[in-house]
Design a protein around this nucleic acid. Structure first.
Lengths: 410, 410
DNA sequence: ATGCATTTGAAAGAGAGGAACACAAACTCC
DNA sequence: GGAGTTTGTGTTCCTCTCTTTCAAATGCAT
C-alpha cells in the first residue's frame, strides 16, 4: 500500500506511453497513415517518425507505400501492424467445446481449431492435455514460435486472474481446480499465461472488435446453460479484487425461486438460462441447444406456449437488466451466446420490463442489442487479454531486425 | 471518438504527472518528508527538490523543519499541504439538511455549517438560494476567495455529472430540475462546479479519508429514507455514462414486492429502507429517524418484534449485497447513513444470507463493516470531487508567490 | 508545366529527470 | 563528548525525448 514505485514518471515513461499509443491504435484500427497517427496522438511528425522507425526495426509494424486517397499533398506512408511480428495463443474452455487460436498483432486470426467437448464432466488434466494438443497443432502449422508473446485463456467458470485457479465451474463440475498450474505444466510455455472468465472475454472482444467498439460502459450478458456477464466500466474490464467480478448470473432476482447450481436460490440464471426457457416451454430442462432451436421454431410458427415461454424469459431478462442498468448506467447492453438467438422473441417483453423498472435517466441512455460477434468472441477476447502487456509497453517486445539500427543511432 | 489528442505524451506531461503524484500524496496522507516522497514516487532527490520548490513557490505546499523521529541520518524536511493554498467549497443537499463547508488542501475542514431542511418538498430555487447564503457565510468567515479552486455538490438524487441536472430526487420531490444552472446563477462562481450523488460522494470520502483508505474495490450502501450506493471500482468512482451509476437502491430484489417511489416494484429500497423496518416493527412507515431510534431501543431491551424486524431487514440487506458481491467482487462493503446504526442488529442475518447467496470465491474476499465516517461523509466527498482537477494537474493552479522565482530560474 | 497542399527528413533547441559529488546533520558507539 | 556511520541536501553535468524549424519531395488541380 505504501511506497509503491509506480508514481514517478521520467523521460522513458513518455517514450513508452507514446509507443504504446501507436501500437494500440494500430492494433485496434488496423493500418493507419503516419499523418493519421500524428492526428490521433497529438505528437509531431518528427516524433512519430522516430517512434515508427523503432517499431519497424523491432518488427512490430511494417511501413508500406502511401495509400493514395485523392487528396492533395504528398501522400503519407501507411503503417501496418505486422500480424507475424507478435502473436498470441488464445485458448477457450467453453460449455461444450474447446478452442485454440493463434492471433496476430492487429487482431488477425492466423489459425484456429475448435473441438467438441463431450457433455459431462472432464478432469482438469484431461482438458489441459487436450488444449495443449490443440495449441501445438496451431503452433506447428504456423511456425511463429519466436513471435509468441503471451497466452490468454477464457474459462466458463469463476476463475482467479492471478493464477488461473478455477473456484467454481458448474458446467465442468470443477471446484477449486488449479487449471493455471496444470496448463502451465503441459504447455511448458516461456510466456505469461493470463486467465479470465468467458463472458468477460466476450465483452472485451465486443468492445475491441465487435458491436461495442469505442463504447466505454458496456454490459455483455452471455447466456448458455449458465449465464455470465462481462462488464466494461470506463473502458476497462471490471474484474474486482480477484477477477471474480461480473458474475451476473448469480444475482438474486427471485428470492423464492428455484435452487441454483451455485448453491443459492432464485439466481438470475435460474430464470433466464436455457433450462428455464425449456421448462416454460414444456420440455425437459436438460434439452440443450437443439431443444432451444426447436422452441424457437415453434415460436416462429406461432405456438402460444413457446411464445409465452420466451416472453416470460424476456421479462426476467428485463428484471435483471434493470438492476444492472441502475447500478452501472451503461451505454450498451449486448446479449451474447444463446441469448443472441432468442433476442427477437424476447425483445418486447424485455423492453417493457426495462421501461417499468429501470430509472428513467439511465434507461434513456442505454440500448439493448444482440452481440455482434459470434461464438468465438471469448476466444478473441482471450487473445486481446494476452496482447495487453504488449500494448501497454511495446518497448519490451522489440526484436532488433539487424545491427544497423544501433549503429545508426550511435 | 476518433482523433482525440490526449494520447501523446511529452516532457511537460511528465512534469505534470510528477507534480500530480506529489500533491496527491500530500493531500491524501498529510505532511510527508522529502525522503518519504522520494520513496513513494521513485523519483530522485533532485527531481523531488525541484518539484517541491515549484509547489512552494506556487503556494500549494509549505516546507517546514524536519520532524525528528529518532532515526539516524540527517533529518528530512517536512513537506505539508497548505490548507489555505487551495480550498474548495463543498455543498450538500441531504434528505433533511443542507450543508456547506470550506475544505483546504490536505482535507482539513476549515469551516462548516449545516442547517435542517424542513420535511416536505422545497423548490430548486429555494434550496439554491439557501445554499448560496450558507456558502457566503463560510466564505466570509475565512477570506480565502483567491484560493478557491472549485465547488463540489452532493445531492440526494439521481444527478447528471456534466451539468447538475437532477433527473429524480424523490426525497425532494424533484424531477428533471436544473439544479446545476440555478446554483451556478446564485453562486456566481468563477470556478467549476461539480455535481454527484450523495452516496457516491460518501464512498469517495470513505476511500480517501475513512474506513476504506487504500481499498480499490469498495461498495458503500447509504441508507436513509431511500437507499443509495457509491461504488469504487479499481480505485475510481463508478459513474457510468452520465453519472447515474450506483443507484443500488433500485435493483429489483423482490419482483412481487411493494411499489417503490421510482415507479418500479420490489426495489431493494422497499425492503431495506427505513420505511420497511418501521413497517415490520409495527409502526407507521413515515416515522423517520426518531422512530428508528425507538425500534433500536426496543431491540436492545429484547423486544421480539423489533428484533425480528431488524433480522428481516438484515436478510434483505444480505440478498441485495450478495448480488453486488457477485457483480463487483469488492474487498469491502460499508454500511453508511442510517444503516450504520442498525448494523449490530442486522449483522448475523445479513452474513447468513451472504453465506447462502454470494459466490464462495467472492464471499471469501469481502468484509461488511459499518462506515467509518459519519453524517458528513458526502460533504467531504464533494470536497474531494472538487479537488480532483487540482490533484490531476496542479501546475494549472500554481500562484507565483513573488517574482524571485522567475528571476532565479532566468 | 506551374502552383498549391501536404508530408518527409534532418539538425538544432528546449524541457525534464538521472547520476555523481561534496557537504551537512543527526544518531550510535566508545 | 568526540569519532564514525548513516542519511539527506544542494549542485553540476549528462541523457533522453519531444518540439521547432527549414529545405526537399510528392501528388493533385489548373
Amino acid at each position: 500500500m505504501i511506497g509503491r514505485e509506480d508514481l514517478g514518471h521520467r523521460s522513458e515513461t513518455v517514450r513508452r506511453a507514446n509507443l504504446s499509443a501507436i501500437v494500440r491504435q494500430l492494433h485496434l484500427n488496423g493500418a493507419l497513415s503516419r499523418s493519421e497517427l500524428v492526428a490521433r496522438t497529438g505528437l509531431t511528425r518528427s516524433a512519430i517518425r522516430a517512434l515508427i522507425g523503432e517499431l519497424v526495426d523491432g518488427q512490430l509494424v511494417t511501413e508500406g507505400p502511401a495509400a493514395l486517397d485523392g487528396s492533395p499533398g504528398r501522400p503519407s506512408s501507411l503503417v501496418c501492424p505486422d500480424p507475424r511480428g507478435a502473436v498470441v495463443l488464445a485458448l477457450e474452455i467453453a460449455v461444450d467445446s474447446l478452442a485454440a487460436a493463434i492471433v496476430g498483432l492487429g487482431g488477425e486470426v492466423l489459425d484456429m481449431v475448435r473441438v467438441d467437448l463431450q457433455p459431462g464432466h472432464s478432469s482438469v488434466d484431461d482438458i489441459a492435455t487436450a488444449l495443449a494438443g490443440m495449441a501445438s497443432t496451431v503452433q506447428g502449422r504456423l511456425d511463429v514460435d519466436d513471435a509468441l508473446i503471451g497466452i490468454g485463456v477464457a474459462v466458463v467458470g469463476v476463475v482467479r486472474r492471478s493464477d488461473g485457479l478455477v473456484s467454481m465451474a458448474p458446467n465442468l463440475g470443477w471446484r477449486d481446480e488449479p487449471l493455471g498450474d496444470r496448463l502451465a505444466q503441459v504447455l511448458g510455455a516461456a510466456v505469461p499465461i493470463a486467465f479470465a472468465n468467458e463472458a468477460d472475454m466476450g465483452a472485451l472482444a465486443e468492445v475491441r472488435r465487435g458491436g461495442a467498439r469505442g463504447a466505454d460502459n458496456v454490459v455483455l450478458i452471455w447466456g448458455s446453460v449458465g449465464v455470465g456477464g462481462g462488464l466494461i466500466v470506463d473502458g476497462r474490464p471490471l474484474t474486482g479484487v480477484a477477477g471474480y467480478g461480473g458474475e451476473v448470473g448469480h444475482i438474486p432476482v427471485n428470492p423464492d425461486g428455484l435452487p441454483c447450481r451455485c448453491g443459492s436460490v432464485g439466481c438470475w440464471e435460474t430464470e433466464i438460462g436455457i433450462g428455464a426457457l425449456l421448462r416454460r416451454a414444456g420440455r425437459p430442462p436438460e434439452g440443450g441447444p437443439e431443444a432451444v432451436g426447436a422452441v424457437l421454431r415453434e415460436a416462429e410458427s406461432g405456438s402460444p406456449l413457446a411464445l409465452a415461454a420466451l416472453a416470460e424469459t424476456g421479462r426476467w431478462l428485463g428484471i435483471g437488466l434493470a438492476g444492472l442498468i441502475n447500478i452501472l448506467n451503461p451505454r450498451l447492453i449486448l446479449l451474447g451466446g444463446r441469448l443472441r438467438s432468442i433476442y427477437p422473441f424476447v425483445r418486447s417483453s424485455l423492453e417493457a420490463e426495462l421501461d417499468r423498472r429501470a430509472l428513467r435517466a439511465s434507461r434513456g441512455l442505454v440500448r439493448v442489442v444482440p452481440a455482434a460477434l459470434g461464438i468465438d468472441s471469448p476466444l478473441l477476447g482471450a487473445a486481446e487479454l494476452a496482447f495487453e502487456p504488449l500494448l501497454t509497453d511495446p518497448a519490451a517486445w522489440l526484436r532488433p531486425r539487424s545491427a544497423t539500427a544501433e549503429l545508426a543511432t550511435a
